[in-house]
Design a protein around this nucleic acid. Sequence first.
DNA 1: GCCAACGTTGGC
DNA 2: GCCAACGTTGGC
Length: 152
Amino acid sequence: MAKYWLMKSEPDAYSIDQLKSDKTTLWDGIRNYQARNFMMNDMKVGDKVLFYHSNAKPPGVVGLATVSKPAQPDPSQFDKKSKYFDPKSKKEDPRWHCVEVKFQKKFKDMLSLDWLKAEKKLEEMLVIKRGQRLSIQPVEKSHYDYIVKQGK
DNA sequence: GCCAACGTTGGC
DNA sequence: GCCAACGTTGGC
């Protein structure tokens, strides 16, 4: 049974257009244990992903992706030149893991955060709740289905 | 650029 | 194990 997720990315860092041209990408650089645990323990190949642009004008869901590879150690944690380098992480016991995601679709018209907030059916979604900063969030099937139906 | 929310760190 | 200080996220 596939699960449903929302994954945030700042378009300046990695956008849906980049994913479209890359086809797949490692979701590296996650340095939050809750988000990591979702990737390590709960995400499975084939799970559905809402791709969300944060810190964008406007922020919102811009397209769809799927999980294409299970969690593996995040290579950026061992790369001294990476901004995600973590000196406390050991090769034999990596602290951070990440999944690979695959491009599925870019919405012609994104669904902005304002729009999500205005939808009665989506009022329980985590992403519209105040102070919700988690960059990977579980999404309910009904919310996912509703968004996919609206997204062109 | 501001700042509320909240996660992490480290002294005790 | 508490909690103050600090850092980051992300909407506005």
